[in-house]
Write a protein that binds this DNA or RNA. Structure first.
Lengths: 341, 341
DNA sequence: GAAACCTGAGCGTGATATGAA
DNA sequence: GTTCATATCACGCTCAGGTTT
C-alpha cells in the first residue's frame, strides 16, 4: 500500500501538513520529530503515524536556518586521491559519533579549492576540515578568522593561529622503514621521494637522518619521484640505468611503490630476492595480496577522530587552543622486503 | 588590510548588516547580490563594497528555503570506486553549465545507500542521480514517485516508471574488444568476468555472441573474476594452471586487467608477445604509460551530461518521459595487444 | 509543580506590491 | 512610462514563553 500523497499538491509535506492531519500544533510535531520531551506517548504515536502517511521528511535546511548551531562540518578533499577518500569515509564515522554532520566539497578538474571552500561557507558550516590543502598560508589565516579550521596532512610552518594541524609523523615513518631494512642487512638503500607533495620533505629528512645514524651517510641516494605509480615507474627506470642497483628502495607512497615494482618486474629484477621495496600509507593498494607491499601505515581512523574531536572542542568550549596533532605511523611487514642477499 | 569584522559579534553577517552599512534596504541588497535589475550602478557599487568590507556571504540555505526551486541535484556514489569519482567530477561540470548545483552523498563503510539517499532528500534535492545503485527495484520506484531519479551504470529490467537509465552499451564494448582481437589473428580468447557487478552480464553476453559470430563458439572460455585487481590476479592464476594458455584475455575492467597483467608478469609470461590483454573503462589506470592497457572506453563526460540534462528536462518541462540512454563505448588500442604469434 | 499542549516570533532570504523621482 | 528603492510577507522550522489540566 503506497503512502497517501501529500496534502498540498506538488509541494513536499511540511510540519503544518502533519499538524493538520494529526490535529495538533506544528510546535508539537516539531517536538515529536526531534524526539524532544513534551509530548505524551499517545500523541507521539499519532503524530508519527500522520507523518509517515503523508511521507513527511524534516527539511534539514530550514532546521539549520532556524537553529543558531548548524552542527555541520565542511570537508574539502581531492576526489581522485585514495588517501583522501579513505579519510572522508572515517570522517563520517567520527562526526556521527559526536553529533555532527558532514558536508562534502570536492576539489576536481575545474573545481578549485576556492570553489570548494566558498560553497562550504555558503552552506553555513561551523568548521572546516581541509585535506591536504594547497592554499597559501594567508588564505588559511583568513579562513581561520572566520571559523575553526583543521589542516589534515599538510604541515604548516610556522604554525598558523586558529589552524589545527593533524598529520602523521612522516620523518618517523621513514625512519621505521630504514631501520627495518637495515635490520635485514641492507646498506645500500635508495629513496624515491615525493617532490613537494605534503609530507615529502619530512620523509626525505627522516630517511636522511636514519641513514646517517646507521653510519650509511655515504649510501644516501634520493631520486625525484612523485605520488603516482607513473612517477615511481619513471624513477625506477632511472635506478635501473644507474649502477649498481641498490639493495632496497623506500618509495614516497604506495602508488609510487607499485610503479617501482612494475618497472622492476619488466626489467626482470626479482622482488624481494634481488631488491626490497617499501611503500608508505598502507593503502588498499598495498594490501592487495598480489602486491603484498611492505609499507608504513598512516592511522587514518585516528586522524579522522582527532580532526573531528578538535573541531567539536573548539565549537563547544571557549578559547580552545590550536596546535599540532602528530600521529604515529606503524611499519607493516609484508612480502616485498627480505634479508639482504 | 584585513576586512572589518562583522557588525554583530559572533554571528555571520546578513543582508541586514550589509543594508545597514550601505544605508539601504535589505531588499535592495538582495537585488544587488543576485545581480538582478533594479539598482543603480552607483548604489550597486556601494552595496558590494559594504558587503565585501564586512565579509558578507549569501546563506545558501536561507536562499533555498525561500525559493520554491532548490536547483539542487543529489548524487549518491561509492567513494572508493574510481569510476564513480570520475563521474562525480564530470557531473559537477555538467550541472554548472545548466545552472544546477550538486549535493554529494557517499556510500561508504557504515553509510548505506539508504543513509545516503535520506540525507539528500532532507537537503531538498529536486532530483537524484544514483551511481550504480544496488537498491531493490521497489525502493527505486518509491523514490521515483517522489522526484526524478536517474540510475547511472545500472541497467533496470524491466524498465521502472520514473527512473531514467544512463549506461554504456556493455555488450557492444565486449564485441569491439573481441573484434579487435580477432582482427589481430587471435582465436583462443578468454573472458574474465565481473560476476554480478553492474554491466557484467551484458559484457559476458557481448563476448559470447561476438565469439559465436566469428565461428569461435568452441573457444568460449569464461572465468569467474570481479572488479578488483585482486580478482583479476586470482583468475589469471587459474588461467595459468590450465593448459593451453589462451592467446588473449578480455578482463571485466581495467583494475581486473592490471591484476591479470601482474600475475602474468610474475609467471614470466610476456605481454603482449605471448598473450594479449584488454581491459574495460579506460580509467586512469589504463592510461598510465607503464601499464599502457588496450581497453574499452566508457564516455564518462557524455554520461554525466546525459544524466544532468535529463534531470533538467524533467524538472523544467511537464510529462517528460523516462527511458534509457545507451552510450557507445570506444576501443582504445594501446600496448597490451598485438598480432597473434 | 509538572506534564502536555499552544501561540507567536524570528532565523536570512526572495518575490510581490507599492511608491517616489 | 521607466527607473530605483522600500515595506511586507512567506519559506519551514525551532524555541521561548504562555495556558490548561
Amino acid at each position: 500500500m503506497p503512502p497517501t500523497p501529500a496534502v498540498r499538491e506538488g509541494r513536499r509535506p511540511t510540519l503544518a501538513d502533519v499538524a493538520a492531519r494529526a490535529g495538533v500544533s506544528t510546535a508539537l510535531v516539531s517536538i515529536v520529530m526531534r524526539g524532544a520531551k513534551g509530548a505524551s506517548p499517545a500523541t507521539r504515536e499519532r503524530v508519527l503515524k500522520a507523518a509517515h502517511e503523508i511521507g513527511y521528511r524534516p527539511d534539514s535546511r530550514a532546521r539549520l536556518l532556524r537553529s543558531s548551531r548548524s552542527h555541520l562540518i565542511g570537508v574539502q578533499f581531492e576526489i581522485q586521491e585514495p588517501f583522501h577518500t579513505d579519510l572522508v569515509e572515517q570522517l563520517y564515522a567520527a562526526a556521527e559519533s559526536v553529533g555532527y554532520q558532514i558536508a562534502l566539497s570536492p576539489v576536481a578538474a575545474g573545481r578549485t579549492e576556492r570553489h570548494a571552500v566558498e560553497s562550504l561557507l555558503g552552506d553555513r558550516c561551523e568548521a572546516l576540515i581541509l585535506l591536504g590543502p594547497k592554499a597559501p598560508a594567508a588564505r588559511l589565516t583568513e579562513l581561520a578568522a572566520l571559523l575553526p579550521v583543521v589542516s589534515v596532512a599538510r604541515r604548516l610552518r610556522p604554525a598558523l593561529p586558529g589552524v589545527q594541524v593533524v598529520r602523521t609523523a612522516d620523518d618517523e615513518g621513514a625512519r621505521q622503514a630504514v631501520d627495518h631494512l637495515v635490520a635485514l642487512g641492507h646498506r645500500d638503500i635508495a629513496h624515491i621521494d615525493g617532490g613537494k607533495a605534503p609530507g615529502a620533505a619530512d620523509r626525505r629528512r627522516g630517511y636522511r637522518t636514519a641513514m646517517s645514524r646507521h653510519g650509511l651517510a655515504d649510501s644516501i641516494r634520493i631520486l625525484a619521484g612523485g605520488l603516482t605509480a607513473e612517477d615511481g615507474a619513471v624513477a625506477a627506470g632511472a635506478l635501473l640505468a644507474a649502477t649498481p642497483l641498490p639493495s632496497a628502495v623506500l618509495a614516497f607512497n604506495d602508488a609510487c611503490a607499485t610503479g617501482v615494482l612494475n618497472s622492476l618486474f619488466r626489467a626482470g629484477v626479482q622482488v624481494p630476492d634481488e631488491i626490497s621495496v617499501v611503500g608508505f600509507d598502507d593503502s588498499r593498494l598495498a594490501r592487495l595480496p598480489h602486491v603484498d607491499l611492505t609499507t608504513i601505515a598512516q592511522d587514518i581512523p585516528r586522524m579522522a577522530r582527532l580532526a573531528v574531536s578538535h573541531v567539536a572542542e573548539r565549537l563547544e568550549t571557549t578559547d580552545s587552543p590550536t596546535g599540532e596533532d602528530v600521529v604515529a605511523p606503524r611499519l607493516i611487514i609484508r612480502g616485498t622486503t627480505t634479508a639482504a642477499g
